Simulated scan of single mutants.
Amino acid sequence: MPNPFHLLLLLFLRLSTAATTNTIGVNYGTVADNLPPPSTVATFLKSQTTINHIKLYDANPDILRAFANTGISVTVTAANGDIPSLSKLPSAKSWITTNILPYHPKTIFNRIAVGNEIIATSDKNLIAHLLPAMEALQKALTLSNLTHIQVSTPHSLGILSSSEPPSAGAFRRGYDVTIFAPILDFHRRTKSPFMVNPYPFFGFDPTRPETLNYALFKPNGGVFDKMTGLNYTNMFDAQMDAVFTAMKKLGYDDVELVVAETGWPSAGDPNQPGVGIENAVSYNGNLIKHVNSGKGTPLMPNRTFETYIFSLFNENLKPTVSERNYGLFKPNLAPVYDVGVFTQQDVLL
């Protein structure tokens, strides 16, 4: 007869695993010519991992069909080049008709990302049409009774004019009031998140080795912010709090933050600082534990951020060695390394 204590322990392990699946997602990029079929990917993620959110860089119909009835929620992306036309309601309605309605409700849509890092493109036409496109897509979703699907757009940390220390966080001058305040007002009105792509990998200083441990969540002396009296033990928190401070300065600190992309390459060019499997394991593994702990950041305590790791696969058609090696998995579904996203298997206790 099974020991009741052991049965309770096994149940606890299952519940613990389930409890950590609500926050960690993965970016499913497809810039490769050797990836498995989307149906294989969907089955793998559902049956063998705790990942239950994916983010796409398009609205690939094969992927959307593959994730039907999986329970895995999907964020789709409207291409940068489509933004000017999507600022008109008829085009926005057509986009929803083509890319959402044929797959709903079997495929769970979480969010539409309107472009990717548009401000970083410095394309004045795209920037001018970004918010109108978001507004039009939101209106089109409402007209289709799909108000549960959110609309947002991911931003690089280049949107900040300063970020160190976190209390100095501010949006770029000239963009703060004219671009970001209206976007943040949209998020407040629609209860949608402000999406950012923090990458400590690009923030550490190779000439200062101590900053690498700070970026990797490893033991370090920390960074003290004199303005707030807070000490930062990792760069991820500092970057998130810099964004939060910029939002607060405009009066929008109540808007939710979502981490649309973050990651660390497991390989790179010879002598490229910081790359490697050990550091990728440290960053992504510690990030997942940190996010799932619910600890939040010094300025945003007790918060759990929906976070998308970049990326699901190593993508062999990316332009540089490091860009080709951000994946958690190889194209054959073997892990590049394990950061704790596999489903816990039943064990004999």
Results as ranks from 00 to 15, higher is better:
H129C: 12
I108F: 10
A280N: 10
A133D: 11
I118P: 09
N231Q: 11
N125L: 15
P37E: 15
A170G: 08
K318Y: 08
G81H: 13
E261N: 04
N234W: 02
L9R: 13
V223H: 05
N286M: 08
L349P: 00
F180N: 02
T77W: 02
F44V: 07
P2D: 15
Q344N: 11
S266F: 00
I118C: 10
S162K: 07
H290G: 08
I51Q: 00
I54P: 05
K124L: 12
K191Y: 03
F201Q: 00
T97N: 15
G25I: 04
N220L: 05
M300S: 13
A92V: 08
L56D: 03
D269T: 13
N220C: 06
R172H: 09
A113L: 02
L160N: 01
T207I: 01
D123R: 12
F12M: 14
Y28S: 07
V223D: 04
L10C: 12
A92N: 14
G81L: 14
Y199C: 03
F12A: 14
N197C: 03
P154W: 03
F12P: 05
R173V: 14
N213Y: 04
R324T: 12
D269C: 09
V336H: 10
I54R: 02
T97M: 10
P165E: 00
V74Q: 08
S85L: 15
P270W: 04
T121L: 08
A170H: 07
D205L: 03
P166Q: 07
V41S: 07
P335T: 13
G251P: 01
T228L: 02
R111I: 03
E323N: 05
T297H: 07
A32D: 05
G81V: 14
N292Y: 07
T153G: 08
T23V: 12
S167A: 12
M195Y: 06
H290C: 12
L8N: 13
V281C: 05
I100F: 04
K295S: 14
I119D: 12
Y199N: 00
V31F: 09
K139C: 09
P198V: 05
N292R: 08
N234C: 08
Y232M: 11
L8C: 13
A19Y: 06
S39D: 13
P273E: 03
A140H: 08
N125G: 15
P301I: 03
T178C: 01
L348W: 11
R188G: 04
G285Y: 10
N125W: 10
L157A: 08
R189C: 02
V339F: 07
P37Y: 09
L257C: 03
N52Q: 15
G263W: 03
V258C: 07
G169P: 00
T49D: 02
G203I: 01
T23F: 08
R324N: 06
I118T: 15
D253S: 10
D205G: 04
F201M: 02
G158Q: 06
R173F: 12
F310L: 02
V281R: 10
L230D: 11
I288L: 00
N213F: 02
H6W: 14
I118G: 11
T121Q: 10
I83Q: 12
G221I: 04
P273M: 05
K330W: 13
